[in-house]
Simulated scan of single mutants.
Amino acid sequence: MRNALTLALILSLATGGIAPVAGASAQELTPLLDSVSSARESEAPSSADRERDEDLGGADRVAAQTGDDFYCRERRLGTWFYCDKPKPKPSEQQSAQPARSSAERLAAIAKELEELKARAILEPTPENIAHYIAFQREQLDRASSFADMWQRTIWQNPDLDYTLQRPVNQLGKRTWLDTRNADRERVLSQISQRYGVFYFYSSACAACETFGPIMRSISDRFGLTVMAISLDGGPTRAFPNYTVDTGQYKAMGMRGQQVPALVLFDTATKRPMPIGYGVMAADEVMNRIFTLTSIKPGSDF
Results as ranks from 00 to 15, higher is better:
T6V: 14
T6C: 12
T6A: 14
I10E: 07
L11Q: 15
L13Y: 10
A14V: 10
A14C: 08
G16A: 00
G17R: 10
I18Q: 10
I18E: 11
A19W: 09
A19F: 09
P20H: 04
V21T: 06
Q27L: 13
E28N: 11
T30G: 12
L32V: 09
L33S: 06
V36E: 04
S37Y: 09
S38M: 10
S38G: 11
S38K: 14
E41L: 15
S42P: 08
S47W: 08
S47E: 11
D49E: 15
D55M: 10
L56T: 01
A59S: 13
V62N: 10
A64R: 12
D68V: 00
D69R: 14
D69V: 15
Y71N: 13
R75P: 00
W80H: 12
D84N: 14
P88K: 07
K89A: 11
P90S: 05
A96G: 10
A96C: 06
S102R: 12
A103K: 12
R105L: 14
R105P: 02
A108E: 14
I109A: 13
E114L: 14
E115C: 06
E115M: 13
K117S: 10
A120Q: 03
A120V: 03
A120L: 01
A120S: 11
T125S: 10
P126I: 05
P126A: 05
P126G: 08
P126E: 08
I129L: 12
I129F: 07
A134V: 14
F135W: 01
Q136L: 13
R137D: 11
R137S: 11
R137K: 12
E138A: 12
D141K: 12
F146T: 14
F146L: 15
A147K: 13
M149T: 15
T153K: 03
I154S: 00
Q156K: 14
Q165M: 10
P167V: 03
W176R: 05
R180V: 08
N181P: 08
D183N: 09
D183T: 08
L188T: 01
S189V: 08
Q190M: 14
S192Q: 04
Q193S: 06
R194S: 05
V197M: 04
F198C: 01
F198A: 08
F198V: 03
Y199Q: 02
F200R: 00
C205G: 00
A207E: 09
T210R: 11
F211I: 05
G212F: 03
I218N: 00
L224G: 02
L224R: 00
T225L: 06
M227R: 15
I229K: 05
L231C: 02
L231Y: 05
F239D: 00
P240N: 11
Y242P: 00
V244D: 06
D245S: 01
G247A: 07
A251W: 06
M254V: 10
G256E: 07
Q257G: 10
V259R: 00
V263D: 00
L264H: 03
K270P: 01
K270C: 04
R271Q: 15
I275D: 00
G276H: 03
Y277W: 05
G278W: 00
V279H: 11
D283W: 07
E284S: 05
M286E: 08
R288E: 06
I289K: 01
T291Y: 02
I295R: 12
F301L: 12
F301D: 14
